[in-house]
Nucleic acid binder design. Structure first.
Length: 992
RNA sequence: GCUCGAGUGGUGGAAUUGGUAGACACGUUGGACUUAAAAUCCAAUGGACAUUAGUCCGUAUGGGUUCAAGUCCCAUCUCGAGUACCA
């Protein structure tokens, strides 16, 4: 019986489905293990071979852990809200829910055909109301919380209100908006209800505020910082501008320090941690307050170098800084306003691209140095960013290159406060070698000591303090889109109100059009039934809005990361209708043990998820404040594009006679095989010969229509061809190529001598436009899912990016055939496994394999274990091994990698239960014990010959044996070795 | 610019604490089987020289440490990823 992989794979896939083989229980005596994949966005294009790489790796690990006796949670679902379905809806009018459901169907079919051991009973879809109910629920929890810096955790907003009632906000140590003003108990009780709500918004962990946002006009929505790459939108590459809008935000900045600290206790890739660290951007320094001359105003600056404060020779404010208008003198007013206007016009992108141009204007105002009381001129300049720190800097040109360049450019003095340092050419930014001078009480000190004393002095004067600043901004949480989670929010007097949790979910309304309204409101503004009735607690028609009992609902929707920020917890109890998850489930599963996904989520999903997890931890909802212990980024699979070389042709026509397009195509499409083209380039005589041939051919063919025919080598170029038309030896399927494109149907081909046509290849990103996308469906059809799984792993280390070349899959496929044959008699091809005692060699092969495979899985080195299997099967084949004692454990070993064939063989071996929970074979070292070693004998470090010696020999005995050997004498040619290095069991090296 | 990662045959990649460089596979070449093809099996396959025996070179480049370096140290080059006026 042949290895009929199609039948076998279909059989076991339906078996697993029917028997719910991989359903995980929420209570078990077994130890838990949670293996998670980053869930996919179900795009219309379906999966290509690059997508399942991580899923295969995690599936191997999950299956391995089941063999090791764990209760494994391995769920899958869909991140199904998102732009493509909405764009499609805008174009075609088809509801995104329909598009999404269709795409999910395709995804599910493709995932199933790869034989993943997912527990589908726990599937989630972020766009499903029963799921986003809980996204809305968490939003409400965040709204009802504030961050207490004393206890360093989130607390219920009621506790904050209680403090306000007792003592106002003067004594409270909370994370809040910068603009929050102080108030007393009396003030608080005098405030109107709306005033109180407005104040509370400045403390809530999700809040509504007017903020500068990244507006993308082409997409018609706001983008988060991590959704912008190089000043343009990550999706589509559209320009982004700064705009002030009222938006929901998440106070992630409250968690900046804890997000940073948490990185220390999770096993995530260093580059990923680095980019989060970078994104959070902690810097330690001081805030210093400079009084502005002649105004009741101060400039608050943040500096990391308080030690250089005596080097200040000017101040620089961001052009957008609030004080600019107030302090600018009449003489400078025109210049300042012109400058502000000019910078406002420049897009973010221009400003980023053009960092070399120095620009700025003097405001005419002066500030007072807190220590020297000297007058310091105040400038504005766009090198100071409004969004970082306080949007103002104390400029120390001798110690900061940007300040230095600015000072040089505008002829501002550059006082030197560094002892023995030349600053005539550039600023001195080295922190280590600093000795401060010309700085009064800081003279002679180093950077650390001087900073400490400067901060102390600032504090004594009440003009500053030590401070830590973070680059991390609060995350904007509103999107002007249709296909996202609606907010559970309605508005009373312009103030947001939460809908009680018992009335969730608030489901998306139907709309006529998915575009923004004519008045510029988000798409939900098109909905006619989108108002909240506070009496009936239900969504009602907009006509009923009376601002007494019926109120308008929020028109924005939540961003893409809302649904992905807690899904890993929801999987633990995904069908629970009464709670986000039961206590039993969360306490059993705790957290993710292994999370596999792409590195592109470093500063988006993975940072926001950690934030929500910490919040949920503070609220006592989850037992761990980090959701994933270990994370692996799988590398990208790139495509191997194929190119055919098109010959440059210059035909001359008889203008009187019209050519058909087919004829023109035939003339224009002459393709040359790769090495033939190389030959042509090198030998002009060959070109002439070919020209003659083609010319004769075409001239005869078209008679008088064609007048001349020239080959122009320089006009030749290569074009992409579909990789499916090319085989493992880079040979083009000419007939297939002709059929591929109608314009090539009449093309001519200059082949190699043997009649084949070769293409050139290049590694590129897998993309439709490069015709190098490889679909797993066709591969499963031709080679089977097990071959594909093995091959994806065999390509190379999981974390590394690597090119795909379908050609190589024959290697893993023939391995599976060899494995199959091992269990079958050669003659009749029937199943044949004997009960004979295994040979010593076979036992050695088996246990060598067990050891290596186990080590490899534990270290996620899946590529080397595939090689190990190949070696094992090759060895057993040549040993003609048929023993059950070897073959049965081998079936288990292979099962995580190639589960279908393993199940089939397992069943044929007479087992009734699925192989998936069979105990992993135990490694027994005694089978590997050797009595002799083939020693490499080196002379001066170069291996010259090998010598088999018993391992029991002592160093002296080895030396004696080696020295007595004829080949040693040949090598030495009478010389006497200076030294003989012997490492027993390893190597012999003779020096001299 | 800064941070991190990586450079090994024609290709993907192996190589434990420094100890036989190139495992395994693809491709290529030759052979067996077959009417033929596919499939399968066998052999060779880093480069140069040599009839053979063998010799020399070889892990991006140049140095260094060591009996011994792909592996450790220093410098340089190239590529990739992230980040970018962060005070």
């Amino acid at each position: 019986m042949n290895y009929d992989f199609n039948a076998i794979e279909e059989k076991w896939q339906s078996y697993w489905g029917q028997n719910q083989t991989f359903k995980a229980e929420n209570n078990s005596d077994k130890e838990k293990f949670y293996v998670l994949d980053m869930f996919p966005y179900p795009s219309g294009a379906g999966l290509h071979v690059g997508h399942p790489l991580g899923y295969i790796a995690s599936d191997i690990y999950a299956r391995y852990k089941r063999h090791k006796g764990y209760n494994v949670l391995h769920p899958q679902g869909y991140d199904s809200f998102g732009l493509p379905a909405e764009q499609y809806a805008i174009q075609t009018g088809q509801h995104p829910a329909i598009t999404t459901a269709e795409n999910i169907k395709t995804y599910r079919r493709q995932l199933d055909q790869l034989g993943f051991s997912f527990d589908w009973s726990r599937e989630v879809r972020t766009s499903d109301p029963s799921y986003y109910k809980w996204t809305q629920w968490i939003f409400i929890q965040l709204f009802n919380s504030w961050y207490n810096k004393e206890t360093n955790k989130a607390e219920d907003i009621e506790t904050l209100i209680a403090v306000f009632k007792l003592a106002g906000n003067t004594g409270i140590n909370a994370v809040c908006d910068d603009t929050t003003e102080e108030f007393t108990v009396a003030d608080w009780s005098a405030y109107s209800d709306t005033d109180k709500q407005e104040i509370l918004l400045k403390y809530r962990l999700t809040y509504l505020a007017e903020s500068e946002v990244n507006w993308c006009p082409a997409l018609g929505t706001v983008l988060a910082n991590d959704e912008i790459i190089n000043g343009v939108s990550e999706r589509g590459g559209y320009p982004v501008i700064r705009k002030k809008m009222t938006q929901w935000s998440m106070r992630i900045s409250a968690y900046a320090q804890r997000l940073l600290d948490g990185l220390g206790k999770i096993d995530w890739p260093q580059p990923l941690k680095d980019s989060q660290t970078n994104w959070i951007g902690r810097s330690q320094g001081a805030s210093a307050i400079f009084n502005v001359n002649g105004h009741d105003a101060v400039i608050d600056v943040f500096t990391t170098r308080p030690d250089t404060i005596f080097g200040v020779s000017f101040m620089t404010l961001a052009p957008e800084h609030d004080l600019v208008a107030k302090i600018t003198t009449d003489e400078q007013k025109a210049k300042v306003e012109a400058y502000i206007e000019a910078t406002a016009k420049r897009s973010e992108r221009d400003r980023m691209a053009d960092v070399k141009t120095i620009s700025g204007v003097f405001t005419g105002a002066f500030a007072e140095h807190p220590f020297t009381k000297e007058q310091v001129p105040i400038w504005i300049g766009d090198y100071v960013l409004a969004g970082y720190g306080t949007g103002a800097v104390m400029s120390v040109p001798c110690g900061d290159q940007r300040d230095y360049d600015f000072a040089k450019h505008f002829n501002i003095p550059i006082p030197n406060i560094f002892k023995g340092v030349d600053i005539t050419e550039e600023a001195f930014a080295d922190k280590e070698k600093v000795v401060i001078t010309n700085s009064d009480f800081l003279d002679g000190l180093g950077q650390k000591e001087a900073s400490k004393i400067a901060i102390q002095t600032l504090e004594t004067l009440g003009q500053g303090e030590g401070k830590i600043n973070y680059r991390l901004r609060d995350a904007v949480f509103s999107r002007q889109r249709y296909w996202g989670e609606p907010f559970p929010v309605y508005y009373v007097n312009g103030m947001p109100q939460m809908i009680a949790a018992e009335f969730l979910p608030i489901t998306l309304p139907e709309v006529e059009k998915y575009l923004p309204t004519e008045t510029g409101e988000p798409p939900l503004g098109n909905a006619t039934v989108w108002a909240w009735d506070t009496k009936k607690n239900t969504i009602v028609s907009n006509d009923l809005i009376n601002h007494k009992t019926v109120f308008p609902l929020e028109l924005n929707t939540m961003p893409g990361w809302a649904g992905s920020s807690q899904y890993f917890n929801r999987y633990m109890d995904s069908q629970n209708e009464n709670a986000i998850f039961s206590e039993e489930a969360i306490n059993y599963w705790q957290d993710v043990d292994l999370y596999i996904g792409g590195s592109e989520h470093a500063t988006g999903h993975l940072l926001y998820s950690r934030f929500w997890q910490k919040f949920m931890f503070d609220k006592g909802l989850v037992p761990k404040d980090e959701f994933a212990k270990k994370l692996i980024n799988q590398g990208m699979i790139t495509g191997t594009s194929a190119f055919v070389c098109k010959l440059g042709i210059q035909p001359g026509f008889d203008k009187e006679v019209a050519f058909s397009s087919n004829e023109i195509n035939r003339l224009n499409h002459v393709f040359v095989s790769l090495s033939k083209f190389e030959e042509l380039k090198g030998m002009p005589s060959l070109v002439i010969e070919l020209e003659k041939q083609l010319s004769d051919f075409f001239l005869a063919k078209y008679d008088s229509k064609l007048t001349t025919f020239r080959i122009v080598l320089a006009d030749s170029f290569t074009i992409h061809t579909d990789v499916s038309l090319v085989d493992s030896s880079n040979q083009l399927d000419i007939q297939g190529f002709k059929k591929w494109r109608p314009e090539y149907s009449e093309a001519e081909f200059i082949t190699e001598e043997d009649g084949t046509f070769k293409v050139s290849r290049e590694i590129e990103k897998m993309s439709k436009s490069k015709y190098n996308v490889v679909n797993p469906d066709a591969i499963c059809e031709e080679y089977g899912a097990d071959s594909l799984r093995l091959y994806e792993m065999f390509l190379g280390p999981l974390e590394q990016s690597k090119p795909w070349n379908t050609a190589g899959i024959t290697g893993t496929h023939s391995f599976l055939k060899k494995l199959w044959r091992l269990f079958h008699s050669d003659a009749e091809s029937s199943f044949l496994v004997s009960e004979e005692e295994p040979t010593k060699d076979a036992m050695k092969t088996l246990h060598k394999t067990i050891k290596k495979v186990e080590e490899d899985i534990e270290t996620f080195s899946f590529n080397t274990s595939v090689s190990t299997f190949m070696i094992c099967v090759n060895e057993l084949s040549s040993q003609k091994c048929t023993s059950r004692g070897i073959l049965e454990p081998l079936a288990i070993l292979v099962s995580p990698y190639a589960p279908h064939i393993a199940e089939e063989l397992w069943e044929k071996l007479g087992n009734i239960e699925s192989v998936s929970t069979a105990p992993f074979p135990e490694f027994e070292p005694s089978y590997l014990v050797e009595s002799a070693k083939e020693y490499p004998i080196s002379f001066n470090g170069k291996m010259r010959f090998k010598l088999e010696l018993p391992l029991a020999l002592s160093k002296d005995e080895i030396e004696a044996a080696v020295m007595a050997h004829q080949k040693t004498k040949d090598q030495l040619q009478g010389r006497i070795p200076k030294k003989v290095i012997i490492v027993p069991g390893k190597i012999v090296n003779i020096v001299g």
